Amino acid sequence: MQTALVIGASGGMGYALVNELVNRNIQVKAFARNKEKLVALFQHHKNVEIISGDVFNEQLMMNASDGVDIIFHAVSFPYQDWDKYHMRCIDMVIKIAQRRGTKIALVDNIYAYGRQSTNPVIEQVRKEPQTKKGKIRLTMENKLKKSKVPSLIVHFPDLYGPNAENTILYETLKNVVQGKKANFVGNMQVKREFLYTVDGAKAMVELALRDDTYNQNWNVPAVHPIAGEELVEILREITGYQKGVRTVSQGMIRLFGIVSPSMKEIVEMLYLTEEPVILSGEKYEKEIGALPRTSYKVGLEETIAWMKKRA
């Protein structure tokens, strides 16, 4: 790989992917709608070309993909806009990749797996999502596979990390950094996975650099599942935070959803806070090698330091 296009480069995983690619001396085109944010994130990075614009602008996407070996699809849309935009976006990326002869690496989540009775979940498990958003993600996956474009589909659990602001854990971290009473979404006794974006990007780029990893699904788990109360204790140790942390229940989010479209859309995914999908990294470790595994303490220290620097 000589040149990569990262669409959605201003988001949490997009930012991590750009940094990891640059660390491997790969030329990167960082694409997102918000030019001001792209400049703030990447203006001092060598080997990064900033391109701002609409991902649905076909001519702009064609220009951006000129000379590119692989397109990393890290675009995220607000929950309430998934129906409107996600399928259009994957169609556009496939069309551009077919015309340019490039590969596609799709940043995916765990929604398509649906409810699973057995953990950890392997890539070969049958996907039967019961939620609207899970069905959208599975449709995206199937479209990509039917396109015949060489592709990677990489499943990540919930994320946290520098610039990862559109995540379920971000609101907790933001209030801790600001010294305010924090909220935590879900049961604080249930162990769930939170993946450090830096680890996710390292694993995904490693997969993208190989020839025998394409036209497959790959799971990239977190270092280990962790309960909310354990995360809070780590945060207290790191920051000296003394305030209480309030559990945000499904009932509270349903109430907020009456006036907030985004909160209304969160409700259907809350089963994951009670019945978490825990990913198996066995395939990656067997075929690629050891997974990047930053401890929660180190990952949270680095994330909070980044947040304070940007405050």
Rank of each mutant, 00 (worst) to 15 (best):
V48D: 09
Y111G: 05
P78R: 01
T102Y: 08
P225Y: 01
I50V: 15
V185N: 06
D69V: 02
T197L: 04
G53M: 11
D66Y: 12
V93S: 01
M61C: 09
H73I: 02
Y296A: 03
G101P: 10
E265Y: 07
G53E: 13
W306I: 06
G134C: 09
Y113A: 01
V220M: 02
I266N: 07
E287C: 01
G240R: 06
Q98H: 12
D211H: 13
H73A: 12
Q130Y: 13
Y170G: 01
E49Q: 15
R246Q: 14
M269P: 00
E275R: 03
M62V: 06
G244H: 14
N34T: 09
L195F: 03
S117D: 07
V267R: 11
Q130C: 12
M263F: 14
L159N: 07
P261N: 07
M92I: 08
A222G: 05
E206C: 12
V223M: 06
E123D: 05
M269H: 02
E141L: 10
G11F: 07
N166W: 11
Y241V: 05
N219S: 03
A30S: 11
E193I: 00
G200P: 03
P120R: 03
P129E: 10
D108V: 03
M61P: 07
I96M: 06
K29P: 01
I258K: 13
D66S: 12
G53Y: 14
E229Y: 15
I104Y: 04
G251H: 15
I96N: 04
E128V: 15
Y284R: 08
V185T: 10
G179P: 04
E301F: 00
P276R: 02
Q178H: 13
W218T: 00
K243L: 15
A201I: 06
L300G: 05
G8S: 03
P276S: 02
E285P: 08
I168V: 12
I168L: 02
G53T: 12
N109C: 06
V125H: 06
L272S: 07
K127P: 00
K308T: 08
I94P: 05
K148V: 13
M188G: 09
L231N: 07
Y170P: 00
H224P: 00
Y241S: 08
V68F: 12
A182E: 12
N119Q: 06
K132G: 13
N57F: 04
V39Q: 15
A305P: 08
I110M: 06
Y79F: 13
N219L: 00
Q43I: 13
W306C: 04
M269L: 11
L152D: 08
K95E: 05
G244I: 14
R293D: 06
D158N: 03
E128W: 06
I266A: 11
D91F: 02
G200Y: 00
G101V: 02
A105R: 12
R192V: 10
M188P: 12
G200Q: 04
P129I: 07
Y271G: 05
I50R: 07
S260D: 15
V245Q: 04
K243S: 14
V177G: 06
